[in-house]
Amino acid sequence: MPAVAPRSGDAIFASAERVNAELFTLTYGAIVRQLITDLEEVDEVNKQLDQMGYNIGVRLIDEFLAKSNVSRCVDFKETAEVIAKVGFKMFLGVTATVTNWDAEGTTCSLVLEDNPLVDFVELPDTCQGLHYCNVLNGVVRGALEMVSMKTEVTWIRDMLRGDDAYELQVKLLKQIPEEYPYKDDE
């Protein structure tokens, strides 16, 4: 019988080493502020945050697979559920809700009610174009790319911009077929 993928990351989070979320939040804030000072343009900051997230995602997927015992997801729907319930919980201690599926089952939204990145944060007028949590896009995109899924991730709703929740839209662009034999010695 194939192993059933865990439907919750609670146990993994509970047994993992943890740190105070405020240290995490404030450190992230320090990063964003540094980027704004260095890059000046909010678009550039958004891009850089996404890139940092991508870098994290491509590494994070290894830890995710190693610790979560998740087996291969049968479809993108299952993938989205696993990200929302296991992935987010395991690393950030919060869960997301998957909703707003399109008819093809390739686009959905991850809705976060609780978001540890944004405590203490308020966007000043000069930064209204900033996607403060853009690092999360990158993480999801990077992690999925490592398991052969090309995605496009965009913010639909952002509480820092006056919306009522954090909504991240994930769109599956294509499944990259696994290549074999792997070229190890290139």
Binding site: F13, A16, E17, L23, I31, L60, F91, L92, G93
Partner: peptide
């Protein structure tokens, strides 16, 4: 509230 040590380490 807490987050995983890995999340902080990655960041």
């Amino acid at each position: 509230q807490e987050v995983s040590l890995s999340a902080f380490a990655f960041l």
